[in-house]
Amino acid sequence: MKSTHVIFLCLGSSIYHMELGNDTQISEFLLLGLSDVPELQPLLFGLFLSMYLITVCGNLLIILATISDSHLHTPMYFFLSNLSFADICFTSTTIPKMLVNIQTQSKVITYAGCITQMFFFILFAGLDICLLTMMAYDRYVAICHPLHYTVIMNPQICVLMILVSWVMSALHSLLHSLMASQLSFCTHVEIPQFFCELNPVVHLACSDTFLNDVVIYLTAMGIAGSSLIYVLYSYSKIVSSIRAISSAQGRYKAFSTCASHLSVVSLFYCTSLGVYLSSGATQSSLLSAAASVMYTVVTPMLNPFIYSLRNKDIKRALKPLSKEEK
């Protein structure tokens, strides 16, 4: 009897592991989106489609303006055009899929599609962080060390900074995507988001996610946290330098530039860090989704207005483009 009992235990254990192994080969996830109310779906579709088109068109105009006008071939506008490109790609990783799901009344995203979306989302989010940091450094050098600006921010250095940002962001994204792909997922595959965000996906796993959580926290603090600290430090130096400017008009112009950049930095960093550092992600899914909308959709859409449409140089560069369209 004992031997028979042992055999049944072994067979049961084998079947359990086979079933668990089959559970890891899930073919799709379900994106719950922002609302399940049918009456709200057309409103959400129209709202997010409009925001996406504004984001793409506005940022494309920035890129075209900086390319066409030789007066804008400076480090500040070079970083700005790269930020616009990153913002277009950033929103394009999430919003089109969300619009397709609303239109087809489907919440499905394939497993491979989810991991791929996660990779590109983290890639362009990291690139945004790097570019915002570089733009703060550019303003710091321009205001605090104006005599050395052309030497420090030469074209070779600017291109190198962009390349390093791409490599760092790609490695960071690859790390999280590979770690997420190694997790085991059971029957519960509903993501309380409108896209495959890292934190919700990781917390759906039925295997141990301790290492994933540690890496998420460390990279969030190491990349986004340190970048935010540097931005705040650089702007504290900028404010000290601006206060020493004798011209009231010069002080106003410098303060206006700082306020615009800091508003976008605060919006992006606070919402993104809030999502990734919130310990109760599953208990505050609605709040997390709202914060995600702020830094994935609203911030990239506001980029053309805050950085460019109030800028006289950009307006001058856009005039020939508007005449050509007419």
Score class of each variant (00 low, 15 high):
K2D: 11
L9R: 15
L11S: 09
S13G: 12
S14W: 08
S14P: 04
I15N: 10
H17W: 06
E19G: 04
G21F: 11
D23A: 14
Q25A: 15
L30V: 04
L31P: 01
G33N: 02
P38R: 05
P38G: 05
P38S: 05
Q41L: 13
F48P: 00
M51H: 10
Y52M: 10
I54M: 15
I54W: 11
V56D: 04
G58F: 03
G58C: 05
G58V: 08
N59L: 01
I62V: 14
I62N: 06
I67C: 04
H71R: 14
L72R: 08
H73G: 06
H73M: 09
H73S: 08
P75C: 02
S92Q: 01
S92W: 01
T93H: 01
I95C: 00
P96L: 07
L99H: 09
V100A: 04
N101W: 02
N101Y: 02
N101K: 07
Q103K: 13
K107T: 05
T116Q: 06
F119L: 00
L123V: 04
L123H: 06
A125E: 09
A125K: 05
G126P: 04
G126A: 08
G126M: 02
L127V: 08
L131W: 04
L132Q: 08
D138T: 02
Y140H: 14
C144V: 13
H145Y: 14
H145E: 10
Y149I: 01
T150D: 12
N154Q: 14
P155M: 03
Q156P: 09
I157C: 11
C158S: 12
L160G: 11
L163C: 05
V164Y: 13
H172R: 12
S173L: 02
L174D: 00
L178K: 10
S184K: 08
S184D: 11
V189C: 07
P192W: 04
E197C: 02
V201Y: 00
L204C: 00
A205I: 07
S207Y: 08
T209N: 09
T209E: 07
V215D: 03
I216L: 02
A220S: 12
A220H: 10
A220M: 13
S227F: 06
L232S: 08
Y235C: 05
Y235K: 03
S236L: 06
S241A: 15
I242D: 09
I242Y: 13
A244T: 11
A244P: 01
I245N: 14
I245S: 08
Q249L: 06
T257R: 13
L262Q: 11
S266K: 11
F268Y: 09
Y269M: 10
T271N: 07
L273R: 05
L273P: 02
G274T: 00
Y276M: 15
L277F: 08
L277R: 01
A281S: 14
S284Y: 14
S284H: 13
S288L: 08
Y295M: 05
T296C: 14
V297P: 04
T299S: 06
L309E: 07
L318E: 03
L318G: 05
K319P: 07
P320Y: 07
P320H: 11
E325C: 12
K326L: 10
